[in-house]
Design a protein around this nucleic acid. Structure first.
Lengths: 234, 234
DNA sequence: TATATGGATTGATATTTGTCATTACCTTTG
DNA sequence: CAAAGGTAATGACAAATATCAATCCATATA
């Protein structure tokens, strides 16, 4: 349960406390440790939050805005592996391996994030088994969703991949059949592993077939069934 | 350090103890718990060890043979996400999420594996922070290597992908520039996300260019530099 | 030995997808 | 207003890749 001091302090980690399930199992004094060792950072839309290959020593908890995570590949081609929205935290796999970032993060919109030293996080995992379980559960969920994207990108043709991206954005990220996104067409292409032109073409086809409506950066899923069918048939 | 009783008992978990780094941080009594609660299973080449979608409640530690892990996609197409050799353990992400397998495992050769109840594993993670760290480290490493494969499969063309598979087999799995594998051409295709025929064609090209030698299921890397170049240039 | 079986190989062809060039559109800036 | 810059959209074309069919080859089986 949230303590009084956190209720009063209407910033970052307090907010996290109320939303992100992973903090639910922390005791009051453990939350205090986090609260005392965090720094809140504001990012403007488009700003780089951290870059692949640089040293990583912090857990990042997003409290406002939206962030895209992407692996930088060859020829300046990126692969977007996920979108993060409040209140969700980002803790790359490098923390336990080589203390480096293995993907980059960019603020898609003006965003606010809290940084907590990774060592504090590790200490909590040692001292609180339930917290450790929650953390491993989180990592496992991420791994499972990676598998999904893996299959989508390697075994489906372009319409199926675009369908998956649209269903992901509508279902998981914006939680609405209509959504306006800060993602560019290039970003959608980077999520579905194709060229920008191909992404545009597939979107136009879906639009022509009245399966979706597109108006600039506003999308509406008109026939979810059809989209799911396209996702299935690859 | 291995205890006397484990030294005497020359089977599964004792062997694991001597090899797999994750067990190094376990205390003697903790190892005993594992030792008392394991069952050793023999698999013939080609046998299914567990199937995607079925209930998962065990940690599997491979002590002999070789196992391929693959995601079953659409149209009977598989994506091989990794090869496991002794002494390595397999603990899918489902254990902490939905207690189901999220990929299938098949014995490539005659294999022996020990099964340990996942709950025992979870208990150890609670009681032994160093073990928890090792485990999370392992999961993180897996995640990082997933990213590598992700980029390889989505951003490289066929020669680059085949090069990556050959370098993986030579470097990580067989640890030799010459190796004979139980993997079929279809398996190599399933590792690199292409059709069997395409895989065969690329292998032939590499052979024609004297970069590798192929004789049935025996491969030899003749020019590692060239192969790495092909991997880089996609 | 003859015959089946399954993987490996090859060639021809069709499909998918990327690249390149051009234009349109929209916003910002001088 | 005009110019500039960026994203979006479109068409023509080229490259990458899959599919299909046929053949080869080794091994198992009758």
């Amino acid at each position: 349960m949230p303590s009084e001091i956190f209720r009063k302090d209407k910033t970052c980690c307090n907010f996290c406390l109320e939303r992100s399930d992973i903090f639910a199992c922390l005791k009051q004094d453990e939350l205090s440790v986090i609260g005392e060792n965090r720094s809140e950072i504001h990012f403007k839309a488009g700003e780089l939050i951290f870059k692949q290959g640089t040293p990583a020593a912090h857990l990042l908890c997003l409290t406002k805005g939206m962030v895209k995570l992407y692996i930088e590949g060859f020829d300046n081609k990126n692969l977007i592996i996920g979108i993060v929205k409040p209140v969700e935290y980002i803790l790359g796999p490098g923390i336990y391996v080589d203390s480096k970032h293995h993907y980059s993060a960019v603020a898609m919109e003006d965003s606010i994030a809290c940084l907590v030293d990774a060592n504090i996080f590790k200490t909590l995992i040692h001292s609180n088994p339930a917290f450790a379980d929650e953390f491993i559960r989180k990592v496992s969920l991420l791994s499972i969703s990676n598998f999904q994207q893996f299959i989508s990108l390697t075994q489906k043709q372009m319409p199926g991949r675009i369908a998956d991206v649209l269903l992901y954005l509508s279902g998981t990220i914006y939680e609405s059949s209509t959504f306006t996104t800060a993602l560019s067409r290039q970003d959608l292409a980077d999520m579905s592993g194709m060229s920008k032109e191909s992404a545009i073409r597939i979107l136009k086809e879906l639009k022509d077939e009245q399966i979706i409506a597109v108006e600039g950066n506003t999308f509406e899923i008109l026939k979810r069934d059809s989209l799911e069918m396209i996702s299935q048939t690859g």
